[in-house]
Design a protein around this nucleic acid. Structure first.
Lengths: 223, 223
DNA sequence: GTCTATATGTGGATAGAC
DNA sequence: GTCTATCCACATATAGAC
């Protein structure tokens, strides 16, 4: 994972050099994300990424060791964005507050960063060859902590006794779908691209079904 | 997912269709499905497909015009399977009967034919370049007929007034997820592969949440 | 640090023997 | 109808001039 060229400047005072590098890397990563999301790892070519970034092809090899290095760099960026988005599930909060918020966030994410979602989806569908570490033992631990939050809500009588793991999968799948399967959805609804109204009614529908379906009790409506 | 005509012309048309041809084509299609599902169109190689089919590479070119022809042949087979699975939504039936049946079928499909689901998913995520016709005007017509069924149920007071389109997307996404994102789910649950029990509790959880969430009334429980 | 020119390998496709 | 040997296009990667 760490084959990303890193500047360790102990004595050299060349801040402008680092800035150029940082900016070019950003441009390349952006271009690479689009190509990889559309055509997959093998399907994307360094030449087309270079064209999109408006840089000579050889520059990509200067900033990144090789094609796989560039791909993993993009992937790491996506996961970072991912992790920062959905780590606010705590048992203190009420599911009637947290769940709608979470669904809103995820749909917003699907709308704002469809490429990131699609890239991640393709990697998973392909068997996640570059995410072995990500899906190691630590992942299961993290996931168990998430399910524990739902379980505590169930124990507190705040929602029906359903399997928390599958509820989480439902939250993921139903929201990501609007990014990953956008082409199909657009064809079905006859809207290219989807309008804000479509995203809003998707959000409303999901919140209605999932909250009611889980028997989430609204704190404002009790006692 | 739809009875709209799909013309994916991949196979060569020869006057005599021998038994050998039919058998070899089957073997090749099977091998191709696995390679394409794992590595995508560009990522899969004719050589590896040939290796998996235990046939010389040139034979693939004898039975199929070219790589794209083989790919579309696989895709057509998947869509055929798809269409035969889920075209039993009619307004006469009751949602309390039809919806659980549908969810069961889709989960069963995800479990029995994960490669088909993944191949289709990758094609959609890539912008469905080989499914232009499939997602033409006819698709929207077919989809509108599906939503109309749900709308009639709503009008009959058999379920809550929610947006039928998004309910359909929810049914699709939540079930397909168990095929497409199997690697992630297996990592989260620490089960490689998923057990029958996992699929069963996925089915139960989805039926619980979606039926209750849609306010589906059980005909057996009234009057 | 940047870019041109090129080496090297892989993969799709086909000709032609059997 | 089947398969070996080969061609050719393309993509990754690098060497080396500027």
């Amino acid at each position: 994972m760490g084959d990303n060229p890193v500047i360790l400047d102990g004595e050299k005072e060349l801040p402008s050099v680092g800035r150029i590098r940082q900016k070019n890397e950003e441009i390349i990563l952006q271009a690479a994300e689009e190509e990889f999301a559309l055509f997959g790892f093998k399907g994307a070519s360094m030449q087309k990424i270079a064209d999109r970034a408006e840089l000579p092809k050889a520059n990509l090899h200067y900033y990144f060791k090789n094609k796989l290095g560039l791909y993993t760099a993009v992937l790491r960026q996506v996961i970072e964005l991912w992790d920062n988005t959905l780590n606010d599930l705590t048992p203190e909060h009420d599911p009637a507050i947290v769940l709608p918020h979470y669904i809103r966030e995820k749909i917003h994410f699907a709308k704002a960063y469809p490429l990131a979602s699609r890239l991640f989806a393709k990697e998973i569908i392909s068997g996640a060859p570059q995410l072995q570490e990500y899906f190691s033992d630590g992942y299961q631990v993290w996931f168990d902590q998430r399910t524990a939050v739902f379980q505590s809500w169930i124990d507190q009588g705040k929602m029906d006794p359903i399997d928390p793991a599958h509820l989480i999968f439902l939250l993921w799948s139903s929201t990501q779908h609007y990014a990953d399967f956008a082409v199909q959805i657009e064809s079905a609804l006859g809207s290219h691209p989807l309008s804000d109204g479509h995203y809003d009614s998707a959000t409303d529908t999901l919140i209605h079904i999932i909250l009611k379906g889980c028997g989430v009790r609204f704190p404002t409506a009790t006692v």
